[in-house]
């Protein structure tokens, strides 16, 4: 499967968050959380340090609560594989403001780079396609990543994007692990914005 995958995960995440505007981001445990913290530690990021398999579901609950704002669930192939049922749940409900982006390195990078199911024949895009989620074909170059950065603001979701990235771990950038602090920081930011905009 791993033919010539060269995309750098930090470069990918930097592109996704460069013009983030009112985007709310939920990042999955491990590298996706480190990437967000390294690229743009922002109060509109909610970092997961655990709850593996829950990133897409948490972002979906947020998307229903904040239907006017674009929501991004950004996570790895291992986290998505653990919560595959969430794709069926989300596909059925069709939240337009939700984008799920997988940083797919085809391995469990935190635990010794053991191959994941995406290295062994499973296509997460094909799984998502089967759940009535809008999908784009697997992404392997930065031009396509830049397009997604714009597309996720258009609320044409639920949008599922699998980005094939190079294996290997960049320097860890660790945000706070205090869940109470992280949840307060995030919800205060979200709700004060909603209040100012007189939104829901």
């Amino acid at each position: 499967m791993s033919q010539n995958i060269s995309l750098d995960r930090r470069e990918v995440v930097a592109s996704l968050l460069k013009n983030r505007k009112d985007l709310l981001v939920v990042s999955g445990l491990g590298s996706a959380t480190y990437d967000c913290a390294a690229v743009d530690d922002h109060p509109n990021n909610f970092y997961l340090w655990g709850a593996m398999g829950g990133t897409a579901s948490l972002a979906f609950g947020l998307a229903l609560a904040q239907p006017r704002r674009p929501i991004l669930a950004l996570t790895g192939d291992g986290d998505m594989l653990m919560g595959l049922g969430a794709l069926a749940t989300i596909g059925t409900q069709g939240p337009k403001n939700l984008t799920i982006i997988i940083l797919d390195n085809e391995e469990y990078g935190e635990t010794g780079s053991q191959p994941s199911a995406t290295a062994l024949g499973t296509s997460l895009s094909n799984v998502a396609r089967a759940t009535s989620t809008n999908i784009v074909e697997d992404i392997t170059n930065m031009n396509e990543v830049n397009n997604i950065s714009k597309l996720m603001h258009e609320k044409a979701g639920p949008l599922f994007v699998n980005i094939k990235i190079a294996s290997g771990n960049p320097i860890k950038v660790l945000p706070s692990r205090d869940g109470h602090y992280l949840s307060n920081r995030f919800s205060e930011s979200v709700l004060s914005y909603a209040k100012n905009k007189q939104g829901r």
């Binding site: 709310l24 909610f46 948490l58 609950g61 947020l62 229903l64 609560a65 969430a86 949840s183």
Partner: peptide
């Protein structure tokens, strides 16, 4: 009320957390 049928209960815990973070 947004009602959501889940594939598994663990989704619901994460879902409710996300809803709360968004003010619901």
């Amino acid at each position: 009320i947004d009602d959501v049928v889940l594939s598994s209960e663990e989704e619901g815990v994460a879902h409710i957390a996300g809803a709360w973070l968004g003010g619901d």
